[in-house]
Design a protein around this nucleic acid. Structure first.
Length: 608
DNA sequence: GTAGGGTTAG
């Protein structure tokens, strides 16, 4: 059938409203029949609604509708491309796009051309399903088929696509080409900076251009300021992206600033914004502020609970996390995967083994689904850290899926702390098979040999890392003073105040010795003399940061430090002492949790 | 028809 244009009344026809509410195939068939009898099925707009509804319910049915149309327009294909669902998988959406491209096959010219409504859907599809190669190819098509400059919809969907590839450099080039970017473009580019940070950290793309977490986040913030100076008014989504940037880099000062901005400028404190703020405050070390926000929320959903439980977890408040876990169920909210992850993690950080086991068992009982890999990971971590290594190993070997690298690594971590070489070697062997390219694994292996005084083996591992061009991740600490973030690497002398810092370190080391501190060198695993080991320790990045903060900051204000690695045993011991000697609270966020050093003790109770 | 959001083991 050939399609005449829709009658003007068709757009709000009652049958179309009915179509929107179709929840199953039989009722859709009924409405379809009615559309045919009323003649509406001959028009493009009603057909587009029909196709859209059909693709939500059945791929076969939507295809059968499409097949009966003699010359479907690009408009109808666009509808199908934009509606990827479980019933209408991405491959099907892509095949519709290919049909557009093939429309001229055997003819002197194509019948159909993709337009600027086609591409945003395609980029979204590639982003959602992580179809990176397709996305790049489709970008090339867009350059061929669309007249420059692309409109804002195409531009922003393109930015969002490149964000998931981790290529912030490409995102930035594309963004800089946009003339007069609108709110969507600004939101997309700011969001891209926070997303690339995520890609860097979790997806394991190591060759991203654009730097570390602090650099990406500070660029996100300066883009936000630039957006304001361009006179574009931010909305709640902008706020969320900026808050995530602050959470990722531990930028409390900027985080508080954006919080005030939201309140002052009438942005809505919706559940997204509030949850992001809760997460930001707890990741920036202000658990109290996070809880105040959580407590004041009129409506909390699973993600708000998860964020708060996760906050309790990283701050070592296992019991408060468990209370919230129960309260959530009491309020009728069904825990999801993440809830179980953060709750188990809370138990693990404090050594609540029995409680953790109970939570693990409740996964099946509460949600009816079998525990997933990440839940087994938490359980293994919980058992391993609390000294029950044999049971942890049994869990890994008997779990129903093939253990991943993270799982072997947590077992290895536990084996190392408890100096169990036998289990450690089993874990390492498996780990290196799964992740031959990750430097941390070799460092662990080398440290383990060193711990058992097998110096030759240890240095062989280090050499083979060098030979394979695998770099060790350098230890780095950030400290925020009056809104400026200062960055220190291990043994760093690049800071303008370097002289004073090292002078202060000498003072600190002297006082530490007076207080009876003897360096614990078990964690510095090089085959070097004892004195040299102590020396290497005294330059760990957090010490430089602490020394600098002690010089610069007013007394009485807590020092907040963010690290990219775990705190080493010796740094942990001396930070406890410094908190007494200098009467300062020192809050350290390491790679996975917080340590709140006060009056000679740490909030983690030395369990980390 | 069209971009876009918060939580996640080590």
């Amino acid at each position: 059938m050939r399609l005449p244009p829709s009658p003007s009344t068709a757009h709000n026809h009652p049958l179309l409203q009915l179509l929107r509410r179709c929840g199953d195939l039989p009722s859709l068939r009924q409405v379809h029949a009615l559309l045919i009898t009323t003649g509406l099925a001959l028009h493009t707009f009603p057909l587009s609604r029909l196709l859209s509804a059909a693709s939500r319910l059945s791929a076969a049915y939507s295809l059968s509708i499409l097949d009966r149309i003699t010359n479907p327009t690009v408009f109808l294909f666009n509808i199908l491309i934009s509606s990827a669902t479980p019933h209408h998988p991405p491959e099907l959406a892509l095949s519709h796009y290919l049909r557009i491209l093939a429309s001229g096959r055997g003819l002197p010219a194509p019948l159909l051309f993709p337009n600027s409504f086609t591409y945003p859907s395609l980029f979204k599809l590639c982003r959602t399903y992580r179809l990176l190669d397709h996305g790049h190819a489709i970008h090339a098509h867009a350059l061929k088929f669309l007249d420059p400059p692309f409109d804002h919809f195409v531009q922003s969907s393109l930015l969002c696509f490149y964000a998931i590839t981790g290529r912030i450099d490409i995102v930035r080039i594309l963004f800089d080409q946009i003339e007069d970017p609108d709110l969507a473009c600004w939101n997309s580019v700011i969001d891209a900076y926070t997303r690339c940070d995520f890609v860097n950290k979790y997806i394991g793309i190591t060759d991203t251009v654009g730097g570390n977490s602090a650099e990406l986040s500070s660029e996100a913030l300066s883009l936000f300021v630039k957006m304001l100076t361009c006179g574009v008014r931010p909305n709640e989504m902008t706020a969320v992206a900026v808050i995530i940037a602050c959470a990722n880099s531990g930028a409390l000062y900027q985080g508080k600033w954006i919080h005030r901005y939201i309140l002052k400028n009438g942005l809505k404190m919706n559940v997204f914004v509030a949850t992001a703020l809760i997460d930001m405050y707890s990741k920036c070390g202000c658990l109290d502020l996070a809880y105040q926000l959580f407590d004041k929320m009129p409506h909390r959903d699973i993600l708000s609970y998860n964020a708060m439980i996760g906050g309790f977890a990283i701050h070592g408040h296992g019991h408060r996390a468990l209370e919230l876990f129960d309260k959530m169920k009491h309020e009728g909210l069904m825990p999801d995967n993440t809830t179980f992850v953060v709750t188990l993690c809370a138990c693990s950080h404090v050594g609540l083994v029995e409680e953790g086991r109970r939570v693990f068992r409740s996964i099946k009982e509460d949600s009816g689904i079998d525990p997933k890999m990440e839940h087994y990971g938490c359980l293994v971590d919980l058992l391993g850290r609390s000294g029950q290594l044999e049971e942890a190993l049994e869990t890994v070997q008997s779990m129903p899926m093939k253990p991943n690298a993270v799982l072997w690594r947590s077992l290895l971590g536990a084996a190392r702390v408890q100096v169990n070489l036998e289990i450690g070697e089993v874990a390492l062997k498996n780990l290196l098979q799964l992740e031959p390219e990750i430097s941390g694994n070799y460092v662990l292996l080398s440290n383990m040999y060193a711990a058992s005084s097998r110096w030759d083996d240890a240095s062989k591992v280090r050499q083979s890392m060098k030979d394979h061009g695998i770099d060790k991740v350098p230890g780095m600490s950030l400290v925020e003073i009056d809104g400026t973030i200062h960055e220190f690497l291990t043994g760093d002398r690049a800071h303008p105040n370097s002289m004073e810092i090292y002078y202060k370190l000498e003072e600190i080391n002297g006082l530490l010795q007076e207080h009876g501190h003897r360096a614990r060198t078990r964690t510095v695993m090089f085959d070097i003399e004892e004195e040299e080991k102590e020396d290497a320790l005294s330059y760990h990045s957090e010490r430089l940061a602490i020394a600098f903060a002690l010089i610069t900051m007013e007394p009485g204000i807590p020092i907040r430090i963010t690290k990219n690695l775990r705190v080493c045993e010796d740094c942990h011991a001396i930070t406890k002492l410094i908190s007494v000697i200098y009467e300062r609270e020192i809050i350290v966020r390491d790679r996975i949790r917080f340590h709140d050093f006060k009056g000679g003790a740490c909030s983690c109770s030395d369990h980390w």
